[in-house]
Amino acid sequence: MEKYDVKKAHKQLYSPPRNAFAVVEVPEFRYLAVDGKGDPNTADSYAQAVAALYGTAYTLKFASKKSLQRDFVVAPMEGLWRADDPAVFLTRDKGAWEWTMMISQPEWITEEMVVSAAGEAAAKHPNPAFDGLRFVAFTEGLSVQTLHIGSYDSETPVLQRLHEHYLPYNKLAFNGDHHEIYLSDARRTAPAKLRTILRQPVKRVE
């Protein structure tokens, strides 16, 4: 049984260069998603969101393999980050951050399958985040991305170069939430070796 892996199916989007910015066109993806706010290091809601997403994702994987004979690698966690003042991302004022944590799904996964899997996962490991779990689709389109290796708090110089130099120089402006894709498991990887894709949807300006 061939196993679908989004990182291989969309290699260009999941293997950007390090220390350089790449312009990409991001098509529609569908995600399991949970919204929240606050410091991801301390907010209970963040840990609950991650647990609900992974619980549902793995339940979907096993259900798909059993009932459809279609297997897939559970995709990496992704996050959309936003705030009333974008400067809080550079100052690392994490209490002011709003987020949507997500795990992308293969195209054959349906709303009905998600509802069933979330209910099964919630029954095994009750968690208030299941109440807000959604199945969403969106297209980011034109985006700029790079690979960051290091701790999450060391992203600031990269984001400064993107925001203050690369985008203005190339006549690009923000066109969506700051997007991060976590290629490493933070529980098992030293902070200095964490691999994170930093992506910013953009639009061209005159």
Rank of each mutant, 00 (worst) to 15 (best):
T146I: 07
K37N: 04
I197L: 10
A137Q: 09
Q105D: 10
E2L: 02
F174L: 11
H178S: 08
R187P: 00
H125N: 15
T59Q: 12
T189L: 02
A190S: 12
V24D: 02
S151R: 11
F138P: 02
N19T: 09
F29S: 09
S15N: 15
V24Q: 13
S67D: 15
M113E: 15
S116A: 14
Q105S: 06
Q160H: 10
D35S: 13
S45T: 08
E140H: 04
L183Q: 11
A173S: 14
K7C: 13
T139D: 00
S143C: 11
Q105F: 04
L162C: 06
A57K: 07
T189Y: 01
G95W: 05
P128C: 01
W108M: 02
L68Q: 13
D153Y: 00
L133E: 00
R134V: 05
T100D: 03
M102W: 05
S143Q: 02
F89E: 03
R199V: 10
A43H: 03
G176H: 12
Q160G: 05
E164D: 15
W99L: 06
V114R: 03
T189W: 01
F130M: 11
P128D: 06
I103W: 06
Y169R: 14
L194G: 09
I181T: 12
R199C: 06
H163S: 04
D84M: 05
R195P: 04
Q12L: 11
D85S: 04
G150C: 08
V6R: 03
P126A: 11
K61M: 14
D84Y: 01
G55F: 00
P168I: 09
N19A: 14
L60G: 07
H178E: 14
G150H: 02
Q145K: 00
K193R: 10
F21V: 00
K37T: 08
D85G: 00
V202H: 01
L172G: 11
V23K: 15
K65S: 01
P76N: 07
P76V: 12
D39K: 15
D185S: 12
G150L: 05
Y182N: 04
F174C: 08
R187L: 04
A123T: 13
T91M: 06
A83M: 04
R92P: 02
L32N: 10
K61V: 07
D177M: 06
A190V: 05
T146L: 13
A57W: 06
G55Y: 00
T139M: 00
L90G: 09
V136L: 03
L53I: 06
D71G: 08
K94C: 02
L32E: 07
S67Q: 15
A49D: 03
I103M: 06
F130A: 13
Y152I: 13
I197M: 12
R92G: 01
A83G: 11
H165M: 01
S67F: 15
T139G: 00
A87C: 02
H148N: 04
R92I: 04
F72L: 07
W81P: 04
S151T: 06
K94S: 07
V26Y: 09
H179I: 10
T110A: 10
P157T: 07
Q12K: 15
V50Q: 12
V50C: 09
F89I: 07
A47K: 14
F21E: 12
A137D: 01
A22Q: 15
G119F: 12
A75N: 15
I181G: 04
K203M: 13
L68R: 13
A87Y: 05
I181S: 00
